[in-house]
Amino acid sequence: MKFLIIIPAHNEEAHLSFTLESLQHQRFKDFKVVVVNDGSIDATPEIIKRFTDADARFETINLQKSAHQPGSKVVAAFKNGLNTQNLNEFEIICKFDADIILPDHYLETVETAFQNHPEYGLVGGLLSVKKNGSWVYEGNSNKNHVRGPLKAYRKECFEEMGGMRETLGWDNIDAVLLENLGWKEVVLPELRVKLLKVKGSDYTIKPADYYGRYFYFLGLNRFLAYVASLKEAMKNKSLSFFLQIVKAYESCRSQKLELKISKDEQQVINNRRWNALKKKWLKI
């Protein structure tokens, strides 16, 4: 199975070479990498050129600088890279970040998982971050969810669910949609990927605004959005945080901002959230 790996990169001079080197060192060799230079103004283009000049499996495209919006910007860059390729040549489509280090057996293990399990639609490993000199599990989200920096989709699954959505929350929306179509999302815990940069550190919006917008673009109805907001506020032990999240959510609703998911897909997402809520809190 051949991999198409698309890596959006914006001002990643400190990390990108580590990511690309870890791909060059993979034991599994049948892949193509497209690095999307998303308006970088640092040495990112020079780093990309070093790899494209030396290895025919590496390509690049250049985009003009755009405003940083969580979720939508990275997916837009990904799609620009995807549109340059003939998908008939590939069986696995990956969206990787430009600040990760993959173990040398990563692609090999993912390919084997897809080969042996035709029901697998999305596969990935676990992210680790460096703390006190040691690499430890990141702990963001749960261990059954493939995180945004290391998505690997079976092409049939990717196409059936309509690809990634250009919106905040895309990396949770995909999991719900593919599962609803009968595919499985699988995390391989033996695959530990080093994450070099803390996610969200370069976001330009406040945390409460982020969550409010996230819950809106995820398609949550008011009740479930308020429950999710309360959960985040309890983590912060702050009533004002809850009110700020709700305010941001309601602002999006009042503006009737465009969602990138259909009414049916919204219902699927809300049903899954509601079922999880009943199972965890109501014991139904």
Results as ranks from 00 to 15, higher is better:
residue 192 R to S: 08
residue 149 P to N: 09
residue 258 E to I: 10
residue 138 E to H: 11
residue 13 E to Y: 06
residue 91 E to P: 00
residue 88 N to Y: 03
residue 99 D to V: 03
residue 162 G to A: 09
residue 154 R to S: 14
residue 11 N to L: 06
residue 156 E to Q: 15
residue 254 S to T: 10
residue 91 E to L: 04
residue 261 I to R: 01
residue 39 G to S: 08
residue 25 H to W: 00
residue 249 Y to H: 08
residue 234 M to V: 10
residue 198 V to D: 12
residue 90 F to L: 04
residue 117 H to G: 01
residue 189 P to H: 06
residue 126 L to Q: 14
residue 105 H to S: 10
residue 179 E to W: 00
residue 157 C to M: 14
residue 74 V to Q: 09
residue 153 Y to V: 04
residue 215 F to C: 04
residue 187 V to A: 08
residue 165 R to E: 07
residue 253 R to H: 10
residue 207 P to S: 11
residue 118 P to Y: 03
residue 257 L to V: 14
residue 113 A to V: 11
residue 176 V to A: 13
residue 238 S to K: 08
residue 239 L to T: 13
residue 259 L to S: 06
residue 235 K to C: 01
residue 75 V to F: 03
residue 55 D to T: 03
residue 127 L to E: 11
residue 16 L to W: 04
residue 279 K to V: 02
residue 187 V to W: 06
residue 86 N to L: 10
residue 93 I to F: 01
residue 41 I to P: 00
residue 129 V to G: 00
residue 98 A to G: 15
residue 235 K to F: 11
residue 257 L to E: 15
residue 66 S to G: 09
residue 242 F to W: 11
residue 19 T to D: 08
residue 83 N to K: 13
residue 65 K to M: 09
residue 85 Q to K: 15
residue 54 A to L: 14
residue 257 L to S: 12
residue 225 A to S: 15
residue 283 K to L: 12
residue 248 A to G: 07
residue 138 E to S: 11
residue 141 S to M: 10
residue 243 L to Q: 13
residue 270 N to P: 04
residue 28 F to T: 03
residue 96 F to Q: 03
residue 19 T to E: 08
residue 194 K to E: 15
residue 272 R to K: 15
residue 201 S to M: 07
residue 57 R to E: 05
residue 228 A to W: 02
residue 83 N to D: 14
residue 227 V to D: 02
residue 4 L to S: 08
residue 110 V to R: 01
residue 137 Y to S: 12
residue 215 F to I: 08
residue 16 L to Q: 06
residue 69 Q to Y: 11
residue 97 D to G: 13
residue 236 N to M: 12
residue 96 F to A: 05
residue 265 E to I: 09
residue 222 R to H: 11
residue 199 K to W: 09
residue 132 N to V: 00
residue 281 W to V: 07
residue 180 N to W: 00
residue 86 N to H: 11
residue 2 K to L: 05
residue 116 N to D: 13
residue 227 V to M: 12
residue 102 L to N: 01
residue 274 W to S: 07
residue 118 P to I: 07
residue 81 G to H: 03
residue 105 H to D: 15
residue 81 G to W: 03
residue 135 W to V: 11
residue 148 G to I: 04
residue 133 G to V: 07
residue 91 E to R: 10
residue 169 G to T: 05
residue 124 G to L: 05
residue 151 K to Y: 14
residue 177 L to R: 02
residue 212 G to P: 03
residue 77 A to D: 05
residue 37 N to I: 06
residue 79 K to G: 00
residue 157 C to Y: 03
residue 141 S to R: 14
residue 195 L to S: 05
residue 21 E to S: 14
residue 207 P to A: 10
residue 250 E to Y: 08
residue 158 F to W: 14
residue 16 L to S: 07
residue 97 D to R: 01
residue 236 N to S: 09
residue 139 G to S: 07
residue 163 G to P: 07
residue 174 D to F: 01
residue 90 F to V: 06
residue 242 F to L: 15
residue 52 T to M: 07
residue 221 N to A: 04
residue 17 S to Q: 13
residue 222 R to C: 02
